[in-house]
Amino acid sequence: MAISKVKILDVPFVNTTLNEFIDHILNEHILKSKKASIVTANPEIVMHANEDSSYMQILHHANYVTADGIGIVKAAEKLGQPLPERVTGYDLMKGFLSKANQQKMSIYLLGAKDEVIQLAKENIQKTYPNLEIVGYHNGYFNWEENDIGEEIKQLKPDFVFVALGFPRQEKWINQHIDQFDKGVFMGVGGCFDVWAGTVKRAPIIWQKVHLEWFYRLLNQPSRIGRMMAIPKFMKKINEQKVKEKS
């Protein structure tokens, strides 16, 4: 069954809840061995896509784009086409890992520093002992000369989590997905750092009041430049609303 979509600055977001989306991916792709690509997009990614047409094409080519950020949800509401909730990369990955554990599925991890992916792998395996981590590779490889794609093709994992940061992770998935027969491929940004314990996710109370972004900024002040995409994004949303009214 298809999921309806909401366009925000030309990026098509799936109109669904976290749990509904997890079940959809499981039933329509994993159980049917149909491959899929997922992009979890925040305002920064939407702005980048609006400035880079080739990246926008990648987002349109992906099977699903989810609202990873309260800014996306607020923008959808402002434009009169509300989304039910955030569907973040970390929550999605956690949900998929839980399903993989319950049904003894397999995963592959790609990205981050070697020490980070090693720790992430160990912690994921401890938390979800029934899933199988069939392979992993750090994010420092020669883009043009490597056998990662061939390895994944041979191993046939159910899920492939790609933590190369945007836009590299989406570019990698888009460039390679045609060579695979099955698997759900998703860019997960800094999720491996959280699983490794090198970066802490915001406490639940910060998440509930939609200040997770501010918590991350306090802990990683170097993100201030990236955060500037948010006011630019909201300005664009306001412009779009005015345009639609005229």
Rank of each mutant, 00 (worst) to 15 (best):
L109W: 07
M186Q: 08
S246L: 12
K32Q: 12
E28V: 08
H210L: 05
G139Y: 12
K121T: 08
V160A: 00
A120L: 10
Q175N: 15
W213T: 04
G80R: 14
N238D: 12
G80N: 12
P82K: 07
E28D: 12
A76M: 09
L31Q: 13
V160Y: 01
G189W: 06
M234P: 00
K94V: 14
F185M: 06
S33I: 02
V209P: 05
R168I: 08
S53R: 09
I30K: 01
Y64K: 02
E145S: 15
D158H: 13
P231D: 10
D10K: 14
A163Y: 05
N19E: 15
A62W: 01
H29A: 04
F96L: 15
R223K: 14
L164K: 02
F21G: 02
W213C: 06
I3E: 04
Q103V: 04
F214Y: 13
G165Y: 08
L218Q: 06
F192Y: 11
G69F: 02
S98P: 01
I204A: 14
R201H: 09
N130Q: 13
S53E: 14
P129E: 11
Q125R: 11
P221F: 10
E44R: 06
V209C: 14
F233I: 00
H29M: 08
M227K: 10
V11N: 01
E170S: 06
T88M: 04
I30C: 02
G111H: 04
D158G: 01
I107K: 00
V46K: 00
T198C: 10
G187N: 07
D23R: 15
G189Y: 09
K245V: 06
M105Y: 08
G183S: 03
D68W: 11
F166M: 15
I107E: 01
R216T: 04
I3W: 06
A100N: 08
Y128V: 11
Q81M: 14
L217I: 09
N50S: 08
V39W: 00
G165F: 11
Y64I: 06
K74H: 10
A76D: 04
N146P: 04
S37C: 09
V188C: 07
E145I: 15
A49H: 00
Y108A: 01
K113D: 08
K235C: 02
P82W: 11
E85W: 03
P157M: 02
L131F: 09
M1T: 09
K156P: 01
T88R: 04
A120D: 05
Y128A: 07
M228A: 10
L26V: 10
P84S: 14
K5D: 02
Q125D: 07
P157A: 03
Y215I: 07
K241H: 10
Q57A: 10
Q118N: 11
V162S: 06
G189P: 06
A75E: 04
L218E: 03
Q103L: 15
W213S: 07
V184I: 15
E132H: 15
Q207A: 12
F233R: 00
L109Y: 06
V242P: 00
L31P: 00
D178I: 11
G189S: 12
L26S: 03
Q240H: 08
V160W: 00
S37H: 02
Y128K: 12
G111I: 06
L131W: 05
F166A: 15
G135D: 08
K5Y: 09
N101M: 11
N27V: 07
G139T: 10
F21K: 02
Q154I: 12
